[in-house]
Design a protein around this nucleic acid. Sequence first.
DNA 1: AACTAATACTTTTTT
DNA 2: AGTATTAGTT
Length: 784
Amino acid sequence: MAKIRATAAEAALPPEDAPEAAPDEMLPISQRAMLRRPDGYLDALNAEQREAVETLEGPLLVLAGAGTGKTRVLTTRIGHLLSLGRARPGQILAVTFTNKAAREMKHRVAQLIGGAVEGMPWLGTFHAIGVKIMRRHAELVDLKPSFTVLDTDDQIRLIKQLLEAENIDEKRWPARQLAAMIDGWKNRGLVPKRVPDGESFGFANGKGRDLYAAYQRRLKELNAADFGDLLLENLRLFQEHPDVLEKYQQRFHYMLVDEYQDSNVAQYLWLRLLAQGTNNVCCVGDDDQSIYGWRGAEVDNILRFETDFPGAKVIRLERNYRSTAHILGAASGLIAHNQGRLGKTLRTDSDDGEKVVVEGCWDDEEEARIIGEDIEQLQRQGHSLNEIAILVRASFQMRAFEDRFITLGLDYRVIGGPRFYERQEIRDATAYFEVTLNPANDLKFERIVNVPRRGLGEATLKALHQLARANGIPLTQAARIIIETEDLKPKPRKALADLLAAFDRWRALIDGMRHTELAELMLDESGYTGMWQADRSQQAQGRLENLKELIRFMDEFDTLAGFMEHVSLVMDAATEEGTDRVSLMTLHSAKGLEFDTVFLPGWDEGLLPHQRSLDETGRSGLEEERRLAHVGLTRARKSAKITFAQNRRTYGMWQTAVPSRFIDELPHEHVEVAEDKGTRGYGPSRFESAETLFASGFYETPGWQRAQRNRQSGGGGPRREPLTIDGTLVAASTAQGSGLDVGERIFHQKFGYGRVASIDGNKLTVDFEKAGRKKVVDSFVERV
DNA sequence: AACTAATACTTTTTT
DNA sequence: AGTATTAGTT
């Protein structure tokens, strides 16, 4: 086992560390000269960008609005540092939040400096860099260098076990909730003993902090760290070991942070410690694009930059190179409603272009139909589908579009979605690999002990747990003991013995066999591939494909351990390029991208300012939602269209929706209401009024005003002044005993006439004459 | 231990 | 509405 750890540790310290061994890694003179040529990289910048690139010493905040060349500044700055010989690649720390951004930056730096330098060893996500540092000093944070990074699944599983051990009712205090709390604490840089009493009481009557502490202890026993630890433990490392900190302070001559508005407290503290060395820290960000507050990001970090880093210089990039004047005007007008901004005024030299179009739809299906038609129209006009995107607030919205596009035969791609690594089959497969490498990983062992089914169920697991807990040993070791006894029935005993033997066999092959072959062997011999082959379901084929893809991906690494290092942090599904497809994604995953044409469906009150955001974080939540809307609009280069639905299904029930308040906040001069094409008639006659409504100038129409009234009155109840932030969304909650009885004949806006089949509170099951059996909320039906 | 039925929960976003 | 988890049954 010691041997295995050694391999893992070696793999964890890849050759990128070479700079120390090969001291002079400065770019060759010829290359530096090339970078200096007069038509070179600096000339391509505007005055502010250039200043941002050339201000090398001291703290610098670059406030870069959407489309102002933020990435260009960052990469040019790195190139500049290298070409001036101010730093070697290994002396520049450059952190991003996403793997995508890290890849992009690596790529562009390589382009800039001609790919001569073998990458930048310290360019990566906060988490990836955190792991790298922690592996080198693992013992100082009570881990072994081969520690594994837990995914969210394992995290929950572990917490469940803790709750069980403490006899806490998981119904009342769900593991997810505790996981979220612990995450939150870690994001704020709080170790267990620093958790405030009040918050500790938020879980299981004050056991929150103790559970957190117990969880951390279990992690150490398992030699594992969760995502939060990659930052928190790093911070602890620096705080408790000034000598280590000093080493890194000296190493990093220049520090760059991308998307600083997304940083959380732990990241901020980490950065500030490092910056106390040279103080050459450059943060790039946009407070108007801070959309990860719910995940612990602190807009405050960017708002306070000048106080945190005394003597800081602030440069604003306000020239937008992306969007037309109308789009920019609409976006700026919207975001101006936020308070607590650093304030930027985006300018552009572009033409006015087209106004932002707003169109109301009957329901989400019509929304998808209208947008589908628009896209087909664009396609006929010769636009590339790759330049069209649909940006939604929540992923459930995607479904209507996917359905529609499939019937239209329109090619689309979903960006984001479940990450490759998060798929069940990938997690299972990597669990096999992990247990082979590290038999002490109880969580992974538990994951696959009975996958595929081997007859090792609850009873066996319980026995194993008991033995393991009593002796303080890993499950696999307990298994080894238990198969020598009579404690298990013959069948499970044999199955367990076989499994252990298999792991031993695979482990013996690690050094003697190509790791991709070994991986295939493991999946075959364990019966895992067989399990999916035998599965006749729709998805089984896809899962097998994914497993193949996994093996292909592994090929890019030299060892199994080296692959495992990256799998949890950096692996995401390959996005096939090449084909012409419409992109479908959430607003969050659209940040940093741009398209000629952007569709923004679902600007409904409760969905675009998302109700949950409003409920949980009030005003600041509303402002974050507004920033999300702003991010959406600013993705568009040439045209943007906003739609909303008047009826939407939530949790399977129809509710009337009200247009988003953000629509009203758009400056009139940059907006036009969709003209009536006369081809969109839909079902019931009441829709005709909606058509005329949109044809005759939106803001003055009766329909619009009705929507306004609805918004303010909370859905027909007694009038309430402007919808309060935590006001509930129209219908559902206003139902006061409907007085309906089973068997009564009713009318519903969408489904027409029907008879009540059963009543459950305010939820009705109705047999409609045309639409069949549906569940609806009683306030949407009227007695006839 | 495995299968079926009932119930609860969902719909923010990501390393 | 649909999925995921859980409880109850064989």
